[in-house]
Write a protein that binds this DNA or RNA. Structure first.
Lengths: 167, 167
DNA sequence: CGCTTAACATTGAGCGTTCAACTAAGCGGG
DNA sequence: CCCGCTTAGTTGAACGCTCAATGTTAAGCG
């Protein structure tokens, strides 16, 4: 193990700006959703993904992958959403281990009610502050990072993410 | 209230890429720190800011602002860090309401032990995947967003962040 | 000076997430 | 067929964060 490669001045500025922006932004979005629609952002995402899926339903694992959530987190979240009547769990016909989450009409209505305020907040705090070029840059940066983190070598290391071999 | 301005296709892609990247990245960084150094990222940030401050100490409110944290969150966090012996709270001489958090030697050592692994993870998952231009772009995007969220009109709205007046 | 209002910080309850342990069911080779 | 391994999903405890309420001190102002 070599010496630590610390961040350069510009790298440090970039990392901190990104970190602070994201902290502030996510906090603001969470508060807006919680206050206006009584749901955390994670629940909103679950509803969105289900609403876009065929039959407004998905296997639990698919849903977990789509929302970048752990299985456990999704289980807890879906349990609470089911209590609210926003979705239902049904058994999977082809795999008796499987469960399928199905969005209910009430759940869809909750999403429809929440969406305008949430989108407005995303625009106001992020999108509308950026130039079109910056929107594109953000997409590219995000894609690169996602690709890295979901690559095979990274998924494997998820549970043992130490000072890893530089591939 | 007018109709909702939904996100365009490219805006949607950018927002989702950023959201997914950040979710994955923050989860990865949190896990790394938790596993290797037994602290959440929020605690790491507190230690960093204190270590950089004069006398390795700061007023609670300063520290809350620096870490983009709520007062309450910081209070809870500092209480726990104090239990571990990583910092201490002393009364402020000039303002009897105030408290000053002081990093201890043990706390500094914990930070020194945690830093290399954390920086390596930030590099591996983010910085080293970007071109120098992208690092610059990320800094600029982050700065714009931070500026917007800490502007007076936004700080005021923090507690009532509805579909706000467009200034 | 005395009163009201604002700022500093903490507290406890409620909620969501994590981690590890666990059940149940599919899968593959002898 | 059955044994071991993997995958799907759930569960409970521990922990951190949020929100609202509280105590305390400083500031503003007539």
């Amino acid at each position: 193990m070599g010496k630590t490669r610390w961040l350069s001045a510009s790298e440090q500025r970039a990392w901190r700006a990104y970190l602070e922006a994201t902290t502030l932004l996510f906090d603001a979005l969470d508060r807006q959703l919680q206050r206006d629609s009584a749901m955390p952002h994670a629940y909103y995402e679950i509803l969105v993904r289900l609403s876009e899926a065929d039959g407004r339903s998905m296997r639990m694992s698919e849903l977990a992958d789509a929302t970048r959530s752990s299985r456990s987190r999704l289980s807890h979240a879906v349990a609470r959403l089911e209590e609210r009547g926003w979705l239902e769990r049904v058994e999977c016909p082809t795999d008796k281990r499987g469960q399928i989450a199905v969005l209910t009409g009430v759940g869809f209505a909750a999403l429809e009610a929440a969406a305008p305020g949430h989108v407005a907040a995303v625009r106001r705090h992020l999108i509308d502050r950026l130039t079109p070029e910056q929107v594109t840059q953000l997409e590219q940066i995000g894609s690169v990072v996602v690709a890295g983190l979901e690559s095979p070598e990274c998924r494997a290391v998820r549970a043992a993410d130490t000072v890893a071999p530089v591939a």
